[in-house]
Simulated scan of single mutants.
Amino acid sequence: MSRRALITGGAGFIGSRLAARFARSGWDVDVLDPLSEQVHGVDPVRTSASLRGLEDSARLTIGSVSDPDALEAALGDAEVVVHLAAETGTGQSMYEIGRYADVNVGGTATLLDRLVRGGHSVRRVVVASSRAVYGEGAYADADGRIVYPAGRDDARLRAGEFDPAGADGRPLRPAPTPEDAPLAPTSVYGITKLTQESLVRAVSPAVGIEPVTLRYQNVYGPGQSLRNPYTGILSIFTGLIARGEPINVFEDGLPSRDFVYVDDVVEATFLAATEPAAAGGVFNVGTGVGTSVLDVVRALFTAAGAEVPAIVSGDYRLGDIRHNIADTTRLRETLGFVPATDFATGLAAFAAWADGRDVGADGYRQSLEELESRNLLRRG
């Protein structure tokens, strides 16, 4: 008899590939997704590559995880729920606060309300969280001690002092952030992801369900939305290059992120959903390697075979972090998983997939105007 999994938000970039991964291992898969216009476009059947990817691997229920009836229709006899459904985007979350709270926190609460009532087969819930829960995360001070600085002060950012400093004023160096680091999100998005985690970890064991938390770093790869201007600098910059428009490089171009390829994220998530050793665990999903924004721009120019002006503007967004790199020791030691795709290889695959695709209109400029009108984007 086949095992069954439900993936909330499963028609998206990660979820559609995860559905295929489950299906290859003989699972039956249900997907619950509202097919939001911001992610899938106005005509998802025509424009959404991730939606088309579900055709051979999953049964789709169109609806929100916040809708109890849609959730009931999709849940069926699932043994595992992978909870990907969420609004994403650090910047947008700072002025769409109600929507982010309603979907991310309210949707998780609706899911847990259903599970608490019983009459289902769920034994494990995997919640997709984010590196945003750490805020700035781990740094090493001038003496090599690991410290966890608070969010960056606006006065220092206005002065062009973008790197966090220690209590003695000396510069700090980014260090891999472990799962037991202090949790201090600096954005509404990060707060909602931390709340999702906390709800799942508090409620699930009380009703005999195993919680697993995954803290994704910056996920990228083929299938990533090229139309959503609120998340993913790789897709945003790719769209600007395709349209021949300049790239506004924030701060001094040296913020760094841990970019992790989508197939590695999918495999780590599948293991988190199926391996007994994952039960109750919290795992970073990343590579442990930081790449600066300027290095991303240069790599995209090489991969695309085209360049546009890249202007290091000194602009900055409130709520952004400077660096974050995952400590992936626990993922390796507990689940035996090490990401297989380095950034150069993954970026080449992403660029080849994106070449010639319709990147849509320039919604990125509008997204910056929205931030600036609310005083959340400051000009350098």
Rank of each mutant, 00 (worst) to 15 (best):
M1V: 08
L6T: 07
G9D: 15
I14N: 03
L18V: 02
A19R: 03
R21Y: 05
R24Y: 01
S25V: 04
W27E: 10
W27L: 07
D33L: 01
Q38A: 11
H40T: 00
G41M: 00
T47H: 04
S50T: 13
R52T: 00
R52V: 00
G53K: 05
L54E: 00
E55T: 15
R59C: 14
R59H: 12
I62G: 00
V65W: 00
D67V: 06
L75S: 05
D77R: 03
D77A: 12
E79F: 00
V80R: 00
V82D: 01
L84H: 08
A85N: 11
A85S: 13
M94T: 15
I97V: 15
G98D: 13
A101I: 11
T108L: 06
L111Y: 04
V116M: 09
G119L: 08
R124F: 00
G135Q: 09
E136S: 03
G137L: 05
V147Q: 05
V147Y: 03
P149T: 08
L157G: 12
F162N: 10
D163N: 12
D163G: 09
G166V: 10
G166A: 11
D168L: 10
R170A: 14
R173S: 15
A175Q: 00
T177K: 00
L183V: 13
T186Q: 09
G190L: 05
T192C: 05
R201F: 09
R201M: 13
V203Y: 07
V203W: 07
S204G: 12
P205N: 06
I209N: 03
I209E: 02
T213Y: 02
T213W: 01
N218V: 09
N218C: 10
Y220M: 06
S225C: 07
N228W: 03
Y230N: 15
G232F: 02
I233S: 11
I233R: 05
S235N: 10
G239E: 08
G239W: 02
L240W: 07
P246W: 06
I247T: 07
V249S: 10
F250E: 05
V260N: 01
D263M: 06
D264E: 02
D264W: 01
V266R: 01
E267W: 02
A268T: 07
T269D: 12
F270N: 04
A272H: 03
N284L: 04
V285S: 01
G286C: 06
T287W: 03
G288K: 07
L294S: 15
L294E: 14
A299F: 07
A303K: 04
A306V: 09
V308E: 13
V308H: 12
D315T: 13
D315R: 09
R317V: 15
L318C: 11
D320Y: 11
R322A: 11
H323E: 14
R330H: 07
L331I: 08
E333D: 15
L335F: 03
L335C: 08
P339Q: 02
P339R: 01
A340V: 05
A344G: 12
L347V: 11
A352V: 04
W353A: 07
D358M: 05
V359T: 14
Y364V: 15
Q366R: 12
S367N: 09
L371A: 14
E372N: 10
R374K: 13
L376M: 08
R378S: 13
R378C: 14
R379L: 13
